[in-house]
Measured scan of single mutants.
Amino acid sequence: FHVTIHVGDITFHIHGVSEEEVKKLEELVRRGADWREIKKTIEEIEK
């Protein structure tokens, strides 16, 4: 999957994300995680 996440003024683009990881990111966004937490999760996914 290709994912784009907008957190305030920050936009993250992630490529090659599995469905499971998409759900993890959706959950973070849904519970209102700040951009640092989302960035950390994205960095883990990209490894």
Rank of each mutant, 00 (worst) to 15 (best):
G8M: 07
V22T: 06
D34C: 10
V17T: 03
R30W: 07
K23M: 12
V3K: 02
V7W: 13
H2V: 14
W35D: 04
L28A: 05
F1W: 14
E46D: 09
A33V: 07
G8F: 05
I42W: 04
A33H: 03
I42Q: 01
E27C: 04
K24G: 04
I45D: 01
G16H: 13
I5V: 07
D9S: 10
E20S: 13
E27N: 06
V3M: 13
G8C: 08
H6T: 14
R30M: 14
V22D: 01
G16Y: 11
V7G: 02
V22F: 14
G8L: 06
W35Y: 06
S18R: 09
E19C: 06
V17S: 03
I14M: 08
H6G: 04
R36G: 11
H13E: 13
E19L: 14
E19G: 11
E26G: 04
A33W: 01
H2K: 12
F12E: 01
I10Y: 15
F1Y: 12
T4Y: 07
D9V: 09
D9R: 06
S18P: 07
E37Y: 02
K23N: 10
I38N: 00
K39T: 08
L28Q: 04
E26I: 10
V3F: 12
V17E: 01
L25N: 00
K40L: 09
E43Y: 06
T4F: 07
R31M: 11
I14W: 06
V22H: 07
H13L: 09
E37Q: 04
K39I: 14
L25F: 05
H2L: 10
K47P: 04
L25W: 01
E26T: 09
T41K: 09
V22P: 00
S18E: 04
E44H: 04
E43P: 01
I14R: 01
E43R: 05
E26W: 09
R31Q: 14
D34L: 03
I38D: 00
T4A: 07
H15P: 03
I45A: 03
R36F: 11
E37H: 02
I14E: 00
V3D: 01
E44R: 04
A33P: 02
F12S: 01
L25I: 11
T41S: 06
L25M: 03
D9L: 08
E37G: 00
W35P: 06
E46M: 15
I38C: 03
K40Q: 13
I14A: 06
E20I: 12
I42T: 01
I5M: 07
S18L: 06
E43A: 08
H13D: 10
E21H: 15
K47D: 06
R30P: 00
K24I: 15
V17F: 15
A33I: 03
E19R: 10
E46P: 03
K40D: 11
R31P: 03
I38Q: 00
T4P: 02
A33G: 04
G32H: 04
E21V: 15
I10K: 14
F12V: 09
I38F: 05
H2Q: 12
T41H: 14
E46K: 10
R36K: 11
T11A: 07
F1K: 09
V29H: 03
K47A: 14
H15R: 10
H15V: 12
T4E: 08
K39G: 05
G16N: 15
K24H: 10
A33K: 02
F1M: 11
R36M: 14
K24S: 06
E44Q: 08
V17N: 02
V7H: 08
L28E: 02
F1I: 09
K23F: 12
S18I: 04
S18V: 04
H15M: 11
R36L: 15
A33C: 05
V3C: 13
V29W: 07
V29K: 03
V29P: 00
D34Y: 02
G32V: 01
R30K: 13
T41G: 04
H2D: 14
E19D: 08
K23W: 10
H13C: 11
E46V: 14
E26M: 14
I5K: 00
V3H: 07
D34K: 04
K40F: 07
F12M: 08
T41I: 15
E43G: 04
G8Q: 09
R30D: 13
A33R: 02
W35I: 13
H15F: 14
E20M: 12
E20F: 12
G32E: 05
E20T: 11
T4R: 03
T11Q: 07
D34G: 08
K47R: 12
E43F: 04
T11D: 05
H15Q: 14
L28R: 01
K39Y: 12
R31V: 09
K40R: 09
K39M: 15
H2A: 10
E27D: 12
T11N: 05
R36H: 14
L28M: 14
K39N: 05
G8I: 04
E44Y: 05
K47N: 12
I42R: 00
I42P: 00
I10P: 00
V17R: 03
I10T: 08
F12L: 10
I38S: 00
V7E: 02
